[in-house]
Structure formats: structure tokens, C-alpha cells
Design a protein around this nucleic acid. Structure first.
Lengths: 348, 348
DNA sequence: ACACGCGATGTTGACGTCAACATCGAACGC
DNA sequence: GCGTTCGATGTTGACGTCAACATCGCGTGT
């Protein structure tokens, strides 16, 4: 009864040969049935399928990958899933890849303490994926000392232009312009900015676009308050802003920091939007229920994910490279955190 | 110069044989170097490593998996990454797996429209992972019609007891008790509850534990307001609660719904925590910056992730099964959204 | 009746790796 | 000096799949 041989040895499942034997056909015919080829007699097919079912046969993807030279798998390099945007993009990437018949291999970049162990096992050091989507900022990639194998198809989701890879990202500049113009159009004299970390290209794009918009409108450019995407950093920045009675409009580089800003304003008793208007960036699910509901810039993460996968698969299958960067448009979502300034500015 | 053969054929990288030829050794010696075996002469090792570098050799994980009968890969079944808890757990799972030398294979369950396509490609239908961690609620699993292959090691992260698999999860009952008791200890007469969806076991545990705690303390059990984890559903429930002057304490089954409740209370002009105290569940990064900062139950997702991976790997490698469910303790985090009721109840 | 074509099925070998076994030479003990 | 041992290295074959090629039998046209 027992088929145990050595105690540690892995028990393998039935192979094509087993199915073939049971069905009384050759392995090749089983292969044809498994791959849904048309040139198999109906009766034979039924017999083979019955045998598969009886044995619980499942194709071995390793053998398939070895034979075909393809893994049907996409690696996704992520840092931490804590970031809202990364998570949403990953979700979309996973869905798009699955639909295209690819599997997602998560390649987490661990923090410094765990790194030594990491590298030894990193799947990037071996052939295991057909291509890679990079979901972390260029800066983090450098810091992690990750070396991408030559010839491996890569798509970068980041606004960085420094890498020689195809790029897909939300149109950061357009979004930041939308946010800034919305506030100026409401009549605010100028707009203050809580930025993302200086190492982030997306943050840089948003900051520069905010600044450019102000300059083009002839507005004074107030000093930037540096944040790091976290609500806490937004809160710190918000405390400074709340203490400054000149501030009537704030553009935070993401919704999380906007939340921190809101809290700081509330604590100081400054009313939003009556005293100060606030705009975020991302449109998290929560933002519609902040107090007050946050006006923000909606990023279409679904499109970003899908387009990245499409570009990568094109590269894998056809060897196409270096299209122009893809910039997915964003949209302004107006809620209750923005309003005209209480005391309208003097007309010029 | 050109090595192109057929236009579509996949270009394969150098194999051990290529390295062996260049280094003037046998393939087996290359294998020994690649696997860091000790019984290789130092000079030989150097020569081989030089050859590897020169050719850009990367081991082929498919061949390795085929040979060894192991994939060194863990499948993680997820529904959508939108949920905070799932994301945090996935993050922890990925880190733990990487450290243990396993790769994460994301297996997204797509929505109904995309399902037909999905199943055809689902990696569960073939051998590609050594084990699976289920990060979706039992209900969703059923609905998706997912059939887990017999004999595949599985760990479930859910409070459901209906499956015959090892289970790891936060101690939902303990957390809900903590939340409820905190409010009662502050002097509230009773605690209202905004629950998660009825299909969720976690939601069910929290609701039952809240009810039990109230009963044990001799408090009246108010009707449950059904939510579905989303901030919107919390908002809807919050509007009903805000309209009811009897309500002085609310326990929402997660932080997102608590956010919705807070918004509804603000809109109605009910002051938190003076008029109404609110407790959440999860401790998202944002919760500390809600207005007011939210008292909530901290879930240790890192432990949940790590313990799941450990249990699964033990099952994969040693064939161990069916330990008792692992319940990771939660912690109460007190912030500003809870306080004693404004008008203390009459002493009994 | 015979050559031919075509669809169904079988046979062979190679993908890259590594365990098991084989071999070879040097150091060592007596 | 000779058998023994041990460490370094080489050879062989199998893991499961599938493309390419081979074969077989049946129907068609003349």
C-alpha cells in the first residue's frame, strides 16, 4: 500500500507517462490533449481526459518552462506594499498579467538588515521570469544594489527618465497643474506645497509642475515643505502651515500627507475649507471620507498597471523596445476641502 | 556577428555546459560552484566563477525545479489588494518567504467578468508552487469556484474553522473584546457596532465577541449596523448612529468604516469624543491622523505573515499538518476618539 | 488497383541541472 | 614499496514536456 521511499524525498505527482499508460496512448497524445490541440480523435481525447482526472494529473510547469524556454512569469520588484499607489498598481498589474496568461512573481526588496540573506536568493540572479516590472523609485533601486541582468525585458513604473527602459506612469505634471490651477481658479493668491521625499522622481515632478504653474500665473512661490509621503510628515508640515495666517491654500503631494495637514489645521482651529483649502493627490478610497472630504487628483492605477504589462509582454514576445514614455492622464476630483478664500483678494 | 536563428524563437542564456567549456571543467563542477559546495579546489572555483561572470551565466530555475521536484515558490491567493489587512499581510508574507528562500507567486482571483479566462491559466491547475497561502475569505474562495489540488500544502489566513487546513490569524475575539471593554470601562452604558460583511468570518468573530462582552457585562445589546469594510458603508451606518441621541459609543469593525462613521458624526455636528466615542480595528497608518485620531485595535500583520509562512514551509518540508489554529494577539491603541460619556450614567 | 494525401498517433531527443556513481592521484601508515 | 583513504573531478542518466519527424491506415482520384 505504501509508496513511501525515502522520508525526505519529495513526492512527485503523476506525469504524462502515467496518464499515457493508463489511457493506453503515447505521451505525445497526452501532451496534445493537455494543450488542446485539435488533431486528436474525440474518443481518444475523452479517454485521456478520464485518465487525467482519475490520476489527478497536473502539468509540471517547470518541465514546460524548461522545454519552451519561457516561464510565463513576470517579476515585480516592490519595496514595501505600504504605499497606496504601489499596492493599487500591483493589483492592476496582477490582474492584467493573469488575463494575459502570465504569473506574477513578487520580488520584494527587503530593508538593510535582511538584505544579505535576500540577495543570495533573489530570483533576479537566476532565470525564473521572462521580464520585470519595477514598482520602486529609482533611488531605492540603487540603494538596494540591485543589478538587472542584461537582456532581461524591463518596464519601469516611475517618472524617472534616467533609465534606458520603457516607462509607464501617471502624468504627474498634469496632475499637479490641475491641483494648483484649481486652487488659483478659486481665487487664492498662491498655493503652498507639501512635497514628497526629494529622492522620489514623482515627487519632484509634482513639485516642479506646481512651481511652474504658479510662476506662469505670476504668483509668488512660497517655500516648499518637505514631506516623505507619510501622514506624519504631512502633519508636521501642517503644523507649520497652520501657524501661518497667510496660508489659505495647500497642495499636498499625496492624500496621506493631506490627511496629516487636515489634522494639524483642525488642531489649530483653522477651518477647512473656510480658512484653508487643501488638495491631495492619489484619490485613495478613504479620501472621500476624510473630514472634510478631500479634493484630490485621481490617478488611474488600473491603466498604469495594464499598460505596463502590455508593454512588457510586447517586449518579451516581439522584442520591441523603447517606445516613448506613456503618461496616463489624471483627473481632478472636487470635494469639500476646497473653496474660495474667505476674504477675497483685492482685484489687481 | 548575428546569432539570430528563427525570429520568434526565444533566445536562451548560457548554460552550465557553456561555462564548463570555457573554464575547462565538467558541468558537474560548475554545478558544485553554483551551489557553493565545499569540495571544490579554490583555484578551480575561481576559474569557474570567472567564466560565469564572463558569460553572464544565470542558473535556470526551471531546470532546477524539474530536477529537484521543488519550486521554492509559495502561491498566495488574493482577491483584491485594496483591503488594508490583506496588503499588510501579503507584505509580511513576501518578506518572510524571501528570507526563507522562497519566491511569492501571486494568484489573484479576478472578478466574475474575467473569470473564464482566469481559470484556464490559473497556476493552481498545474504544478508550479510548493504550497499555497490563502489570503481571501472562505466565502470568496467558494464563489470563485477554486479547487485546491489534493495533497498541496495549504495555510489559511482567516478565522474560519470550516476548512481542514492549518489556520493563522489575528485573535479577532480578543481584539473585539478589548475594544468593547475599553468603551464600557470609560463609563458608556453600552456600545453600538458597525460590523463587517456577513460573509466574513473575521467580521462574524468580532461581532460575536462584541455581543458576548456586552452580555457578560449585563449591557443591552443594540442592533448591529451591517457594513462591508468600506468607508462608504461606515458612513451610511454613521448617519443612522448620528441621528440617534442615545448613541454614545461605537465600535466599528475596521478603521475604514470608523472613518466613515467619524465623517457622518461631524456632518451632524456630533462631537467626537465628547458626544460619541469611536473605536476602530486594524490600526492603519492613517488612523493616527484621522480627526480626531482614532482609538483602535492594532493587528500584528507582520507576525501573521511570518507565522503563516513558517507553518507552510514546515508543512512543505516536513509534511507536518494540523496544528492548532494560531491566534496572534492584538493590542488596544488609545487615541483621542474615545472619552467618558459627557453625562455620566447614573450609578446603579 | 495503385499512388497519393492527410489525419491520427507513436518515437526520439533535447531543454539544464544535479544526485549517484566512477575515476584518478596524492598523502599516509606500516 | 604497497595498499588504503580521501578529496577533487568527471560521466551518466533522469526529472517531464513537446517539437520534429516517422509511421500507419484510410479515403480519393484516375
Amino acid at each position: 500500500m505504501s509508496a513511501e521511499e525515502s522520508p525526505v524525498r519529495r513526492r512527485r505527482g503523476p506525469s504524462m507517462a502515467d496518464v499515457a499508460r493508463l489511457a493506453g496512448v503515447s505521451g505525445q497524445t497526452v501532451s496534445r490533449v493537455a494543450n488542446d490541440r485539435h488533431n486528436v480523435d474525440a474518443a481518444t481525447r475523452d479517454r485521456v481526459q478520464a485518465a487525467m482526472r482519475e490520476l489527478g494529473y497536473r502539468p509540471n510547469s517547470a518541465a514546460r518552462a524548461l522545454r519552451n524556454g519561457q516561464f510565463r512569469s513576470i517579476g515585480v520588484i516592490v519595496f514595501e506594499l505600504s504605499s497606496f499607489g504601489t499596492t493599487r498598481t500591483l493589483d492592476a498589474v496582477a490582474a492584467a498579467a493573469t488575463i494575459s496568461g502570465y504569473t506574477i512573481n513578487l520580488l520584494p526588496v527587503l530593508d538593510v538588515n535582511q538584505r544579505a540573506v535576500t540577495n543570495a536568493f533573489s530570483r533576479l540572479g537566476e532565470q525564473a521570469v521572462d521580464g520585470v516590472i519595477i514598482l520602486i523609485e529609482a533611488h531605492t533601486l540603487d540603494e538596494a544594489g540591485i543589478q538587472l541582468p542584461e537582456g532581461l525585458p524591463v518596464v519601469v513604473v516611475d517618472s524617472s527618465a534616467r533609465y534606458d527602459y520603457p516607462i509607464v506612469d501617471s502624468n504627474q505634471a498634469q496632475g499637479a497643474r490641475l491641483a494648483t490651477e484649481h486652487l488659483l481658479d478659486l481665487g487664492h493668491e498662491t498655493v503652498w506645497h507639501v512635497s514628497g521625499p526629494p529622492t522620489s522622481f514623482a515627487a519632484d515632478r509634482r513639485r516642479r509642475s506646481w512651481e511652474l504653474t504658479l510662476t506662469q500665473r505670476g504668483c509668488e512661490v512660497p517655500p516648499v515643505l518637505d514631506g516623505d509621503w507619510t501622514p506624519s510628515s504631512g502633519y508636521e508640515a501642517g503644523r507649520k502651515l497652520a501657524a501661518n495666517p497667510d496660508v489659505t491654500a495647500v497642495f499636498a503631494a499625496n492624500d496621506q500627507m493631506a490627511l496629516g495637514v487636515l489634522r494639524a489645521l483642525h488642531e489649530r482651529g483653522r477651518v477647512v475649507p473656510d480658512d484653508v483649502s487643501v488638495v491631495g493627490f492619489d484619490d485613495m478610497e478613504e479620501s472621500a471620507h476624510f473630514w472634510p472630504p478631500l479634493t484630490t487628483i485621481l490617478q488611474n492605477f488600473t491603466d498604469v498597471g495594464r499598460l505596463s504589462v502590455d508593454a512588457l509582454i510586447r517586449e518579451i514576445q516581439a522584442g520591441e523596445h523603447h517606445h516613448d514614455p506613456v503618461a496616463v492622464p489624471t483627473k481632478l476630483v472636487v470635494r469639500s476641502s476646497t473653496a474660495p478664500p474667505r476674504r477675497p483678494q483685492l482685484a489687481g
